[in-house]
Design a protein around this nucleic acid. Structure first.
Lengths: 295, 295
DNA sequence: AATTTTATGAATCAAATGTTGCTTGACCTC
DNA sequence: GAGGTCAAGCAACATTTGATTCATAAAATT
């Protein structure tokens, strides 16, 4: 529950000194997260113990708990929706071992997905869409763990545009097409740590020698590819598991393509009908339960 | 001056370890203000000294100075304490057109990811893991939009097990390997609407003629492939966008593989070190900022 | 090849943090 | 007035924090 309302609710039942502390907390919630507890006590004009007691009185085990709740409200990407749910679920059910791990992975990733779609994320998403829309040709590049992302983006993109090219030819011919890249083209490059060398080399080649604008889908502005890029789509990849997660990158790529389709409007719709007809002719999909949307 | 721009400006002149620290700071500015310096160092994967040195290098006398600059950017204006950040909702409504769509997609998908990791989801996830663990061989199958999911699952799986096989040979030889499938094998088949015919045919062949158990990653227990399956991992694919989302399926697959790695414990760890060594020999990854986990 | 310079992490240090135990004093009840 | 309860604060505590020192390793320079 929101700590502020918890305080106001309990305020009247508090002894005078605790009320003084509570008032300070209520008036300076940011300080609770940013200052040391002793410093808060100093400013509130109470001895440090009082702060401890306040937290305890409000039902927290720790002052750390209390502080972290305030910190969560302060963070700029407050996607905390999922981890909150995680906490309660886990306490209720006392998941153990594998189940707990799996659950934590799921919630963390969900949070990362939501987090990459915050205001800043969407702004860059739109910037990327603009770049791609005016491109003569769009190259999709991603190696190893990032390959699936590039592949999928290209696949869906190709359902409504015919100027997309996936750079993954067999026999190391993957990037031959880049030889014909121009300054009017866009390279959508996917690369998160650990950064596959091929991707970096090819993106650098495209950017420097072909003057192609690079839209990077990566994990940091300062990643090798982020520095090369005109637009930088950022995602988190950390998880409690052994590996890092590609799901957030996948999600952002998917949204980007959906955004492009939406912006193309009827044009995209017509193209998709076209694709459907062609795929029908090949009996690509099972006839039962046919849906409207292809991918 | 803005610490972020000060970092990007000085980044190139920094030694590698300081760059690692700088990256963390730039990627997690909130954490700089809210976490202890040592904790930041831990998360950045550098010793605590490095953080001190970074602050000093950037022209701050103290780490405290550095942190306080970040804290200042975090503080809310006094007025907003009471409106309690109804921000996210309001902003969503203020958003228009593309931005609103993108935000909604992100939110919906995040919800689906979290939803597929609920109690039931995790139970089946563990059931699937059990099946796979005792398998002689594990086949990965997914066509079209589901290909990326199968590909990624196989890629990560192969980092610590050598009995995985991706069914996607060129020239329509994709499923020749299934001819040697046995009842001791498992087929992980990914198939969501609209269901690609190849996947269904091949899964049916494996299940009926080879007696191979099928673990299905699909959108309904009643989907063509769900009825064939021994274990059924379910995901939602609906979005407000034109297409349906593959991200939830991707996420669940990723968790499944992570779960397998975790359950394998040290065995998996050793195998991964092995993979790392081999990839190092081929200089697969960029040496800068090497992280611990591969995929 | 030799020498200087730079980069890095382990060990160490004093300062601070949050907590606990104990004491004091006020107020109430019987 | 004795006994009890509750607030409140002091002092000591083990931890943790951020900084410093020093030895070694790696680059750059001569």
């Amino acid at each position: 529950m929101d700590p502020a309302s918890r305080i106001t609710e309990a305020f009247d039942r508090l002894p005078p000194q605790l009320q003084a502390a509570a008032r300070f907390v209520l008036d300076h919630p940011d300080d609770v997260a940013l200052l040391s507890m002793r410093e808060q006590a100093r400013r509130a004009g109470v001895p440090p113990v009082t702060m401890t007691r306040l937290a305890r009185q409000l039902g927290f085990g720790d002052y750390r708990e209390f502080r972290e709740l305030h910190a969560r409200g302060l963070r700029r990407s407050p996607a905390s929706h999922f981890s909150e749910r995680a906490g309660s679920l886990q306490q209720n059910q006392k998941m153990k071992g594998d189940a707990a791990l799996a659950a934590q992975i799921g919630w963390t990733v969900a949070e990362h997905v939501a987090g990459s779609h915050d205001d800043g994320g969407i702004a860059t998403l739109i910037a990327a869409a603009r770049q791609i829309e005016k491109a003569r040709r769009v190259y999709f590049l991603g190696a190893r763990s990032c390959h699936s992302v590039a592949f999928h983006a290209h696949y869906v993109y190709s359902l409504f545009r015919d100027n997309g090219l996936l750079l993954d030819g067999a026999g190391d011919t993957g990037s031959d097409a880049l030889r014909h890249a121009t300054a009017d083209d866009v390279l959508l490059a996917v690369s998160v740590a650990p950064y596959a060398s091929v991707t970096l080399e090819r993106a650098a080649y495209a950017a420097r020698h072909r003057r192609t604008s690079v839209v990077a889908l990566t994990d940091s502005k300062l990643s090798p590819i982020g520095r090369e890029a005109a637009v930088c789509l950022l995602v988190r990849t950390t998880t409690p598991s052994f590996f890092h997660a590609m799901t957030p990158a996948f999600a952002l790529a998917e949204t980007l393509i959906a955004l492009l389709a939406a912006r193309a409007g009827d044009k995209a719709l017509g193209a998709i009908r076209n694709s459907e007809a062609q795929l029908d002719a090949f009996a690509t999909f099972s006839p039962s339960n046919r849906r409207k949307r292809i991918p």
